[in-house]
C-alpha cells in the first residue's frame, strides 16, 4: 500500500490540472457570451445536421436497404469525432505556452484536456441528433447500444492517439501541419462516411479495411442498423492499431516535452 500513495497523489494532481485546463479551454474557445460552451456540441451538430438533411431529401430514404439518415449521421459524427480531436491537437502546446509555467502542468495534460473536450462535444452532438431523428421518426433507435458505445470509444481512442502524434510533430516541424491537411482530406474520402464496406468489391474491401477507423465506424453502424447489412470489422485489429499509435504518440509527446520552451 505504501507504494500506491505517491501514485494516488500524482493522479489527484493530474485530475485537478486537466480539470483546470478544461475550464480554461472552454472559456478561451467559446467565451461566456451568447450560448457559450453550448457551441461545443452545436458546432459539430450543425455540420452533421446539414449533411443529413441533404441526404435525406435527395436520396429518398434508403439506398440498397440502408436507412439513409442513420447512414449519414453515423458517418459524419464518427468522422467529426476523430478528425476534430486530431485537429485540436495541432498547436495545442504553442497556444498554451503560458500555462507551462506551472510545474504541475505537463504538455500531456494540455493534450488530454483538448481531447476530452472534443470527445465530449462530438459525442454529445451525436446523441442529441440521434434522439432528434429518432423522435421525428427518420431513424430507428440503435439495435445494440453496447456496440454503439464500443464503436464511439474505439473511434475516440483512434483520434486521441493520432492527435498526440500530429500535435507533437506539428509543434516541431511546420510541414507536418501542411501535410496533414491533404492527408486528412483523403482519409475523409475513404473513411466510410458515404458508404459501407459491403458495397465495395472484395479487393477494395481488403485495402479499405487497412484503415483503422473503418472498423470503428462499421461497429458503430452494426450497433445502429446491423440487421440491414453485414458489418465488416476486426476489433483486435483496430485495438492493436490504436495501441501502437498511442504508444508512439506518448513517446513523441515525451520528446516534444523536452524541447518545449515556455514563453
Amino acid at each position: 500500500m505504501k507504494n500506491i500513495e505517491p501514485l494516488r497523489h500524482s493522479f489527484a494532481v493530474q485530475r485537478r490540472v486537466v480539470g483546470s485546463l478544461l475550464m480554461r479551454e472552454i472559456l478561451t474557445r467559446y467565451g461566456r457570451y451568447n450560448i457559450g460552451f453550448l457551441w461545443l456540441f452545436a458546432e459539430p451538430a450543425m455540420f452533421t445536421l446539414i449533411i443529413t438533411l441533404i441526404w435525406h431529401y435527395t436520396r429518398a430514404g434508403r439506398i440498397s436497404g440502408i436507412p439513409i439518415t442513420a447512414l449519414a449521421i453515423t458517418g459524419y459524427s464518427s468522422l467529426l469525432l476523430w478528425r476534430n480531436i486530431v485537429n485540436r491537437g495541432k498547436h495545442a502546446v504553442s497556444s498554451n505556452n503560458a500555462v507551462l509555467y506551472h510545474r504541475n502542468i505537463k504538455i500531456l495534460d494540455v493534450f488530454l484536456s483538448r481531447i476530452l473536450l472534443e470527445i465530449a462535444g462530438a459525442v454529445t452532438s451525436f446523441f442529441v441528433l440521434s434522439i432528434l431523428f429518432i423522435y421525428i421518426g427518420w431513424m430507428n433507435p440503435p439495435e445494440n447500444m453496447l456496440k454503439v458505445i464500443s464503436g464511439l470509444f474505439l473511434l475516440a481512442w483512434f483520434g486521441a492517439s493520432l492527435s498526440l502524434i500530429i500535435g507533437s510533430l506539428s509543434e516541431r516541424f511546420e510541414f507536418v501541419d501542411r501535410l496533414w491537411r491533404p492527408i486528412s482530406y483523403i482519409l475523409f474520402l475513404f473513411s466510410g462516411v458515404a458508404y459501407i464496406v459491403e458495397w465495395l468489391p472484395l479487393d477494395s474491401q481488403k485495402i479499405i479495411l487497412l484503415l483503422p477507423m473503418i472498423h470503428g465506424l462499421e461497429l458503430l453502424r452494426d450497433g445502429y442498423f446491423g440487421s440491414c447489412f453485414t458489418a465488416h470489422y476486426d476489433l483486435f485489429y483496430i485495438s492493436m492499431c490504436n495501441l501502437c499509435l498511442t504508444l508512439l504518440g506518448l513517446l513523441l509527446v515525451k520528446v516534444a516535452g523536452r524541447r518545449i520552451e515556455a514563453e
Binding site: R16, S20, R24
Partner: peptide, 8 residues
C-alpha cells in the same frame, strides 16, 4: 480561478 484550481 485557473491558478487556484491548479494549485488546489
Amino acid at each position: 480561478r485557473f491558478i487556484c484550481r491548479v494549485y488546489g
